[in-house]
Amino acid sequence: LVRYRTISKIPQITLNFVDLKGDPFLASPTSDREIIAPKIKERTHNVTEKVTQVLSLGADVLPEYKLQAPRIHRWTILHYSPFKAVWDWLILLLVIYTAVFTPYSAAFLLKETEEGPPATECGYACQPLAVVDLIVDIMFIVDILINFRTTYVNANEEVVSHPGRIAVHYFKGWFLIDMVAAIPFDLLIFGSGSEELIGLLKTARLLRLVRVARKLDRYSEYGAAVLFLLMCTFALIAHWLACIWYAIGNMEQPHMDSRIGWLHNLGDQIGKPYNSSGLGGPSIKDKYVTALYFTFSSLTSVGFGNVSPNTNSEKIFSICVMLIGSLMYASIFGNVSAIIQRLYSGTARYHTQMLRVREFIRFHQIPNPLRQRLEEYFQHAWSYTNGIDMNAVLKGFPECLQADICLHLNRSLLQHCKPFRGATKGCLRALAMKFKTTHAPPGDTLVHAGDLLTALYFISRGSIEILRGDVVVAILGKNDIFGEPLNLYARPGKSNGDVRALTYCDLHKIHR
């Protein structure tokens, strides 16, 4: 019993810090008490220290592992850092350059016999395009090294910054494609005289377009951006097909006994025919423009016929181009109408809503002055909100995010209106959640004399007048207030005048 009563005193000691020596009952000389009392004092002292730490809000209350900052290894790049964003855009520009100039170089340097010394005699450094290609190869190699040090988000939505895990993730992902696209074939085969082989191998750079397509997928929600990307894709495919079309004609031209190829026909049409040795002929500019003209006309199913396939190889390629053109029509131009419709969806919704308003007016036989006010209010409210119901949009977000959005939407009023000066951010967040926005066209009466005042109004834009009878008592403008002081009276009061809008007004109100 003594032991039980001794232990039962522990909660009292913990909360009230009572010393055991003052209790005459606990001072009985028993061996059990002498053993338990020192333990009680020690526990009391420890609990006292913990309570003191909690009340003082000291940093040592938290466990040590929670006080440590997340460790980022040296030379690790955050995937959302500004440097990584700028670097990704730079790589994107280099990939676009590669997609345009690599097929052009591979096709127009394929057994090209233009006048001038061969590239091997001039030297590697004197070729501007080769120098640019070398810079692109170096940048792609540097990009691989950067990807080995860039964080990523795993399946659990955690940012991984450990170098080993980053390397394994990159090896399992895009490393092989990036490595093949970054191989400097110019340096590996330079001086061997195989410019045709170098041009063909350099087309491996186009593998990076797969990554670019995935990154550009984030802009699919913007109709104008999608339309622009589709047109660029169409032009890029036409450019690639033009390079292939020229390569076919250029390879067949020296081996044909009869002059029936499209390059021969082009030379005869523009007065620059090929001679018996295969030299001469149109310039590279004429060849490229004509090839691009043929691919565009074939892809769009126009086909004027002034550039036509004559050999079997050219006919087979033309059939493939027609098939590609039909697929592009289905996948690209078939979506253009939907994209344009999405661009004008706001206008369509406006006309639909206006039609419903006019049908309501016609069905209920609203008189002319009231009908005009109804239409003007709808037009003004639509121009202010673009038909978007803010309350319906915010309803799907958590309250903390709703408060931040409301604070942002009402920031101008909260910053410049005098009653809100000096208020804490928590108070402003709470008030912003209570605001209701209303609009009024010129001549609209917001409050009639004798109406119950259940709200306090803040003028965000425009001006109003307060009338008693036919006498203008006051004219209020931006950041002015009218209405009933909230919670100042037990019952809502009545208006002693009319409140009429002089201009288009936007008002925020808080109800009782």
Rank of each mutant, 00 (worst) to 15 (best):
K434S: 04
M251T: 04
P128M: 07
R74K: 07
V86N: 01
V226Q: 13
I77R: 01
L145K: 01
I237C: 09
S276K: 15
G164W: 14
P70I: 05
A392D: 13
D257N: 07
V447I: 11
L279P: 04
F171R: 01
L229G: 05
E121T: 14
L90Q: 01
P398A: 01
E221I: 03
L374E: 01
R214W: 04
S345G: 05
W87I: 01
E375P: 01
S283Y: 01
V226E: 14
P70Y: 04
I177C: 14
E158K: 13
G303Q: 01
A224T: 12
S277C: 04
L431P: 02
K395I: 07
I72Y: 14
R362D: 03
S298L: 12
L413C: 07
H73W: 04
I138T: 03
M256R: 12
A432W: 01
K287Q: 01
Y329W: 03
N386T: 05
S412T: 13
W89D: 01
L446V: 08
G281N: 01
I177P: 08
S194Y: 13
Q415R: 07
D88E: 05
I189L: 11
L327M: 04
P282I: 01
A449G: 06
T120F: 04
A235Q: 01
Y124C: 01
V212D: 04
Y384P: 03
N306W: 01
V212G: 04
N154Q: 08
I146P: 01
A392C: 04
F101K: 07
Y65W: 03
G267P: 01
R429T: 03
F378D: 04
A181L: 01
N306M: 01
G325R: 01
L355Y: 06
P309V: 01
L227T: 04
L229E: 01
C243P: 01
R373I: 01
L323G: 03
I77N: 01
T113Q: 12
I177Q: 01
L227N: 01
L327Y: 01
I405Q: 01
M322E: 01
T438F: 12
V180M: 13
A235S: 14
S412P: 11
L176M: 13
F378S: 06
T150H: 01
S258K: 15
R362F: 01
W89F: 02
C243F: 01
T445A: 07
I96Y: 01
R362S: 03
E64Y: 12
S258D: 06
N306Y: 01
A440R: 07
L207V: 13
Q127T: 03
V302C: 14
I284K: 03
A167D: 01
Q353D: 15
R342L: 13
A119E: 08
L200P: 01
L67W: 13
D186W: 10
Q269M: 04
F228D: 01
I72K: 15
Q341N: 04
S283L: 01
Q68C: 01
H416T: 10
L92S: 04
G278N: 03
H264P: 01
G280M: 01
S105E: 04
G305N: 01
H448C: 07
F294T: 01
N275S: 09
G173W: 03
G249Y: 01
R429H: 01
T76P: 01
K202G: 01
I284G: 01
A348N: 03
I270K: 01
P184F: 01
L343W: 05
L67A: 04
P117H: 07
Y350H: 04
L188S: 10
S301K: 12
Y104K: 01
G267N: 01
G123F: 15
V226L: 12
V100I: 10
F360L: 04
G281E: 01
H380G: 08
V393F: 02
Y274W: 04
Y65C: 14
P70W: 01
M251Y: 13
Y65F: 06
P398G: 03
V307T: 04
G261L: 01
L188C: 10
Q415E: 12
I138W: 14
G116A: 13
R373D: 03
K287D: 01
I324C: 08
I189S: 13
E115R: 15
V131S: 01
S298N: 01
S283R: 01
S297N: 01
H351F: 05
G422C: 12
Y124I: 11
I248F: 01
Y97N: 01
A430Q: 11
A330G: 03
E314F: 01
L78Q: 08
C126L: 02
K215E: 04
N156Q: 13
V357S: 03
G280Q: 01
V86E: 01
T445V: 11
G199V: 09
S308P: 01
G164C: 09
I388M: 08
I138N: 03
D143W: 01
Q372L: 09
S258Y: 03
P273H: 01
N410R: 11
P398F: 01
L67C: 03
R71H: 08
K425P: 12
Q127E: 04
T102C: 01
L230E: 04
D217N: 09
S283E: 01
Y124H: 01
E314Y: 01
Y384S: 10
K84S: 02
R214D: 05
P273R: 01
V212R: 03
L187Q: 13
F185Q: 03
I270G: 01
A432T: 04
G443N: 10
E121Y: 12
L206P: 01
R421S: 08
I260S: 04
P442H: 01
R349S: 10
G164H: 12
F378Y: 11
F304D: 01
A167F: 07
V95K: 01
E375L: 11
G281V: 01
T113G: 14
D268A: 09
K272Y: 01
R373E: 03
A225C: 11
R259Y: 08
T438W: 07
L428H: 04
L216A: 09
I166A: 03
L129P: 01
P128G: 05
Q402A: 03
V226D: 10
M139S: 07
I166G: 01
L200I: 05
Q379P: 02
A392R: 10
P441C: 14
G443A: 03
F360W: 01
E359A: 05
D186T: 13
A107W: 01
V336P: 03
N306F: 01
R218Y: 08
Y80K: 03
H439D: 01
W245R: 01
Q341M: 11
N335Y: 13
L428D: 01
S81Y: 01
H169Y: 10
N335I: 03
H408F: 04
V160T: 06
S276P: 05
Q372W: 03
K425M: 10
A69M: 04
I260Y: 07
C417T: 12
Q127A: 02
T113R: 08
Q269D: 01
Y124W: 05
W262L: 01
S297I: 01
D268E: 14
L394K: 02
W174Y: 05
S337Y: 10
E252P: 01
I177L: 04
L263W: 01
L279F: 14
D137H: 03
L236A: 01
I340D: 01
I366S: 01
I141S: 05
W75D: 01
Q127C: 03
Q127N: 06
L409W: 03
T352W: 11
R371M: 03
S301E: 01
L206I: 05
C406K: 04
V447R: 02
Y246N: 01
F108A: 01
D286N: 01
R429W: 01
L241P: 01
E64F: 01
L197W: 04
N310Q: 04
F294P: 01
Y384R: 11
C126K: 01
R208K: 06
A167W: 01
P128D: 01
L206V: 05
Q402Y: 03
P442C: 03
K425S: 12
E114A: 15
F294W: 01
A430G: 04
P419H: 12
Q253D: 15
E112R: 14
C406I: 05
S192N: 13
I332N: 06
T102A: 07
L266H: 01
G164R: 14
